[in-house]
Structure formats: C-alpha cells, structure tokens
Design a protein around this nucleic acid. Structure first.
Ligand code: FES
Ligand code: FES
Lengths: 152, 152
DNA sequence: CGTTAATGATACCATTTGAGTATCATTTGT
DNA sequence: ACAAATGATACTCAAATGGTATCATTAACG
C-alpha cells in the first residue's frame, strides 16, 4: 500500500529541480547528475511529463525541459494521475466486473470517505509548496540527492 | 494505489459472516456457499486468520471456525497488517536501503501526516461497526454475496 | 473401528504492476 | 558534418497479487 510510486517520486524531484534552476531549460543529463536517478528511467519519465503537458521540451543542442506552468499549479495529484493508474483507493471488482453493489456497501462508504480526505490533502501539495520554504527542512546543502524531491 | 486487497476484503466478509451466525463454529464450506469466494482461496485465508489468532478452529466433523474475540475488537487494520505487507504509505527506500534523509524531508512529512489520518480512520472500522447497523446500507436481503463484507 | 467431514501444511502457478534498460530515429545549434 | 539533445518504442526483470492443488491430520458418528 504505497501512496506514491518511484515514478511519481522521481518526477517530483525532477520538477522541483527544474523549478529551482532559473534557466530557460534544463537537460536530462544535468538532472541525472544532480538527482542521481538512472538515466534511461529519468528520460522516460521526462518524456511522459512532456507528452502529458507538464513540461515543454526543446530538442537539439542546448535543449532540455522547462515547466509549462507555474510551480504552484503542478500538484502531486497530477503526477499520481499520470504515473499511477488510478487515484482510487477502492475498487471492488469481481472477475473484472464492477461491483453491482456499490451503492449500498458500508465498507465502500467508509473507504470512499477516507479517499476524499486523502485527496483533499494531496491536492494541497505542489512542487512550489515543497520546494520553496513553505515547509520545514529546507536546510541541507549539497550532498544528499538520494531521495524524494523535496529536500535535495 | 489500493487501500485494501482482495485477501483483506475476503477476510472481512468471512469474519462478518461468522459474526452474524450465532453458532459455535462455521465451516469453510458454509462460507463458500454464502460468500461465493473460491473455496481454496477462502480456505487459505481462514487458515491464515487462524494462525494469526483471529479465529479459533476446530477440526474434524462438525468443526469450523469461530471468532477468538469480540467483533468490536477485530479491526480492519488488523487484517491489513496480516494480509498486506505493511500499512505504511511512505517508504522511501533506495536500492534496498532506508533513506538517509528521512528526518528532514518535506514530502515525507506531508505523507506521514496523511498516513496518520488514514490510520486513525481505519482503526475506527471493525467488523462490528460494519456488520451490525452502526452504518447505513443494512437493507439488502438475500441475493448479493458478491462483494465486500459489509453488505451481503 | 472405519468412514467422512472438517482443518493444517505446503507447494505451486498465473497475471499484473513496478522498476528499469536499450535502441534507433529525429531535431537543432555550432 | 557533428554533437548534443529529445522522441518513440520495445524489451527485461522482480515482486506482489490472486489464485489452485495436494496430501496429511484430526475428530465426531454410525
Ligand atoms: S524520505 Fe528520503 S528524501 Fe524524502
Ligand atoms: S462495493 Fe462491492 S460490496 Fe462493497
């Protein structure tokens, strides 16, 4: 039961990194060096972000990626939607068929309610909110590029 | 991103079913008939519940399973702990190693907070709370044995 | 007793998802 | 022309999920 997968996490880091550089565009190579994410994997992620419209890309020498909208408008939920099949916590399928009983199921009601809460909170997380001091832990310098987009 | 898996769901149904029967013990065969869960799968689940101490079993003719404690004390979180490796929504491991950065990571802080909320709510769900009218949707009679423990 | 109805213990299999790699084609600045 | 970049696509590998199958053991009942 993981809320976010590696894809989503890495995408978050990459986007944060781009947001912090005040450049026209940031290349995959630079991000690989900075974030220590395996190159082909990061490239795939960036391509996805690009095709999904979160990044604009420029090809050729000197090219790279840039945010296609402001950091406040790039939400964690956007990434989850893109990289994780669904954001739904509750499915109740039986042999590929949707449950005929969705409307009067107490367990489903409970889980749906929890889901709404989680979503509400996730929607409050953007790359801006993590990356620019809204939150604590903005202290560490330099070395750690290992995990999550927020700190490194 | 599923909150509960099939195992957990089926276990929930089985436990609710047992709770509703006012009998010394309920056999797997009876539950297969009532809940429409594949027999070998349900048996495995029951065995697990038994070995984990949620059910007491009696072998031999006339045997079966009984709750080993009161329905109020069997929580959804117990089942999640048993059937899903972890209840943690957030792990941040890198090449099998725990993240060296867990203490000053803004994203982790956010997700941890969400996790606490989710857990608090999940802990409020027991087989008693779903099965005996604390919650809505206690209406349907008879036919539907297809999904979730709560309704059928 | 011996049969039969039950669980216990294990081992196995299939599908899906997550995580990551590899390759070739295309674009563009110098 | 060449080098530095992304685009498109296909592939591999491991773990988790969702099951099946088989044989052993126990105990009530006739
Ligand atoms: S916990 Fe590893 S950097 Fe966030
Ligand atoms: S949604 Fe299917 S029974 Fe709960």
């Amino acid at each position: 039961m993981k809320l976010i997968t590696r894809n989503t996490d890495y995408a978050m880091r990459a986007l944060c990194h781009i947001a912090k550089q005040r450049k026209e565009s940031v290349s995959a190579a630079e991000m690989v060096a900075a974030l220590k994410i395996p190159r082909p994997f990061l490239r795939k992620i960036l391509q996805t972000l690009s095709s999904e419209g979160l990044l604009r890309s420029t090809k050729g020498q000197g090219g790279g990626f840039a945010l296609s909208r402001s950091p406040q408008k790039i939400l964690l939920t956007d990434l989850i939607r893109i990289f994780q099949n669904t954001i739904q916590l509750n499915e109740c399928v039986f042999k590929k068929k949707l449950c005929p009983n969705r409307n009067n199921c107490a367990l489903k009601k409970e889980i749906d309610a929890i889901e709404q809460d989680v979503l509400k909170r996730l929607r409050g997380i953007s790359i801006a909110s993590l990356g620019n001091g809204h939150h604590p832990a903005r202290s560490n310098q330099g070395k750690c590029h290992v995990h999550h987009s927020s700190v490194c």
